[in-house]
């Protein structure tokens, strides 16, 4: 598909801006003790990718829309590099337990969120 770059770029703009404003919102609401924004974006993004990638099996969704959502929006909404940087910063601030919980907890809960997304999609489809 020639127009792939257009759809993924459009999705990425929406994804990155959603992540930015979510981070700002969390910063204002809960302060900067933890990066709640990045954590919440990664976990909710995991749930959504589990849900949508399963729905694709059941419902016909055009390739452009798939790329827009999965590669563009969700790819940009979630971020791996900030998660690693935050883990490293917690360690540098000598908050060792926080670093371990955040570092191990994010992929672990992310995995659960994906499975929840997959199960939700199957339930949704069977309704």
């Amino acid at each position: 598909m020639k127009e792939t770059y257009f759809f993924i770029a459009l999705g990425a703009i929406l994804g990155a801006l959603s992540r930015y404003y979510l981070t700002l919102f969390c910063l204002n609401k809960w302060g900067n003790k933890y990066s709640y924004g990045t954590l919440f974006a990664n976990l909710s993004g995991s749930f959504l990718i589990g849900f949508i990638s399963t729905i694709i099996f059941y419902k016909i969704i055009s390739l452009e829309l798939q790329q827009f959502i999965l590669i563009g929006f969700l790819g940009a909404y979630t971020t791996f590099s900030s998660y690693i940087l935050d883990t490293s910063n917690l360690y540098r601030e000598k908050r060792f337990m926080d670093a371990i919980f955040y570092g191990i907890g994010t992929p672990l809960i992310g995995f659960i969120c994906i499975e929840l997304g997959i199960i939700s999609a199957k339930i949704y489809n069977s309704l």
Binding site: A12, A16, R19, G45, G50, I71, G75, S81, T106
Partner: peptide, 18 residues
Amino acid sequence: TGFLGTYTTFSTYELNTA
């Protein structure tokens, strides 16, 4: 926020595993 946040991704990483 813009470039590296978007270049790397967490959702696909988890999806590949799951």
